[in-house]
């Protein structure tokens, strides 16, 4: 993924706001993990968040579907404000798909059952309809032939593609990716990134925590650099990679681009 094609990033975005984070703060005990995070994401926008480990990038996107609580600030997703109401949180989570570093597939269910579980139990779809939709998405991630296997029988790359299909089965408006390729062998990273690129081409709103800078250059509208719980810098990929403004960004880029 080293080509830096001008990408589809130039497509005009609608001005409909999907996600807003307003001065979000989070503490783990004494430790200030997120410091005044402000972020607005448009519908169809694709954002890559990068930064050194422990910089709060995963925590930020995990706050958006409330897998992490935050102590101060406001988060609004698709017009609904996150609060402590369980029903409201579940409503938002239905519209926000998430892909994890360690896939988190359900090992006791087959690939197909993994995919239809939430549509059937959360969206109340009839089983047959849910299975048809699941097969459609498994086709899209190019593993329909694995539908009746268990996750443990698949390679890491295949498992991650199933995880993407599982999220898509809920027809989410937003997809969050939490280091989706970090646990994969190099030859499997490509297949997962390709799946994510097709997803991007369909206009999905995406927030992606990743160190795959090639992916950022190809598909992102905006790259955000975080360090120490703060957003240090954000810009278009072209500007971000060619003219980084802060010293910390420069240091980070030199470390991950020239090793």
């Amino acid at each position: 993924m080293s080509e830096s094609s001008p990408s589809s990033a130039q497509k005009p975005l609608s001005d409909q706001v999907m996600i807003t984070l307003e001065s979000v703060h989070k503490w783990y005990g004494q430790f200030h993990v997120l410091k005044d995070i402000n972020l607005t994401v448009q519908k169809g926008e694709r954002i890559v968040i990068c930064g050194p480990s422990g910089s709060g990038k995963s925590t930020t996107i995990r706050c958006i579907n409330r897998l992490e609580e935050y102590q101060r600030g406001r988060i609004t997703v698709d017009g609904h404000e996150l609060n402590n109401d369980v029903k409201q949180i579940e409503r938002i989570r239905r519209e926000v798909g998430m892909v994890f570093q360690h896939f988190n597939l359900f090992p006791h269910l087959t690939v197909l059952e993994n995919c239809v579980l939430a549509p059937i139990w959360v969206r109340k779809q009839p089983r047959k309809q849910a299975e048809e939709a699941a097969m459609h998405y498994l086709q899209r991630v190019k593993i329909p032939e694995q539908a009746h296997k268990y996750p443990g029988q698949l390679s890491g790359g295949q498992q991650q593609r199933v995880a993407i299909a599982r999220s898509l089965c809920m027809n989410p408006k937003i997809m969050l990716f939490d280091e989706p390729t970090s646990a994969l062998d190099p030859e499997m990273i490509k297949e997962v990134l390709e799946t994510m690129v097709t997803l991007a081409e369909d206009g999905m709103t995406m927030l992606c925590v990743t160190h795959e800078m090639g992916f950022a250059k190809t598909v992102a509208h905006r790259v955000i650099f975080m360090d120490g719980g703060e957003i240090i810098e954000q810009n278009t990929p072209e500007e971000f990679f060619t003219h980084p403004r802060s010293d910390r960004t420069k240091l980070f880029l030199s470390q991950i681009l020239h090793h």
Binding site: E90, R93, V96, F100, F106, V122
Partner: peptide, 17 residues
């Protein structure tokens, strides 16, 4: 693993489900 609960939560499943 905690990831199992997180994955279920992220799909919108409630506690009992």
């Amino acid at each position: 693993p905690k990831g199992q609960v997180e994955a279920a939560a992220a799909l919108g499943l409630g506690y009992w489900k």
